[in-house]
Nucleic acid binder design. Sequence first.
DNA 1: CTATTATCGTTGACTAGTCAACCATTTATT
DNA 2: AATAAATGGTTGACTAGTCAACGATAATAG
Lengths: 151, 151
Amino acid sequence: MTKDNHSPMIKPSSSPISRLAGIISRRTGAYVNQAFKQYDLGGGTYPFLLALHHNEGMNQNQLSHELSVDKAMTARTLQKLISTGYVYRIEDPDDSRAFKLYLTDKGKSIVPELLKILVDWNKILTQTLSPEETQILAALLLRVADSTGSC
Amino acid sequence: MTKDNHSPMIKPSSSPISRLAGIISRRTGAYVNQAFKQYDLGGGTYPFLLALHHNEGMNQNQLSHELSVDKAMTARTLQKLISTGYVYRIEDPDDSRAFKLYLTDKGKSIVPELLKILVDWNKILTQTLSPEETQILAALLLRVADSTGSC
DNA sequence: CTATTATCGTTGACTAGTCAACCATTTATT
DNA sequence: AATAAATGGTTGACTAGTCAACGATAATAG
């Protein structure tokens, strides 16, 4: 054991919902990032790839909403995805400001692998939860996330 | 309405636990960051201040564990907190590598205000949840966060 | 008692994400 | 038709966070 990490048991005392959400989010990032090293892209790109997968032709603003991410992030992530050949875009014939976004064949080909990584991670996340608990958690989280939308 | 934002309603289709956690975490950051502008520090510093508040004298590694944050982050956040006068540190007499960390009077004085900000935010987060649901959510999240600790 | 290994903290280089300002184009107002 | 306002996308500057490498000191093993 050459690592510096102790077991990162989380103290219940310091556990408001937002802090736990942060911890889960960061650990997800670490895991996904690790798993994505084999493709030449960071873990932050997968939501974009998946969103495009079942909604091809959307533009960057729609994508930003779908993912609840700033459009600046979308612009930069897309630059990377385009330059690495996973996505291409064409000018929207109905609006010359906008672009329609599509997965390339390369992009399509990795979708199943991305999904597998996410399913694996989800199993880790929910390993101590029953299916019903998992469902309850997801539903409650969704309500919480939605209730921050108005401001 | 000069703003670019549509109401960011979250699609249930795209809502695994980790993604919702990310959304909540980011919106928390935005809110807290906003609320903290009046003090000369970013929203990312409050967990450190609160952890020190009810556990003075801890060192940076302990703090990192407590908060589930990389020690590099801790080092840099502490630099800022020390240079802005919210925290000070003294060499640990039992271990000359380590420092014991303490809130200054300035640091102590803002703790109640920080807590108020967090309570307010928590109200927003849980506004659509009953107290029981809130408790269930926190408990489930804690279990999920813990189950990512082993790897 | 010396050599190895672990620990505390710092730094550099990187990813993810935000906000604000901007340009160009589109839509709405009058 | 002309002006005003909204929208799509880009960029710059910033915060939060990670990982890897390092120098010191401390603890452990031979």
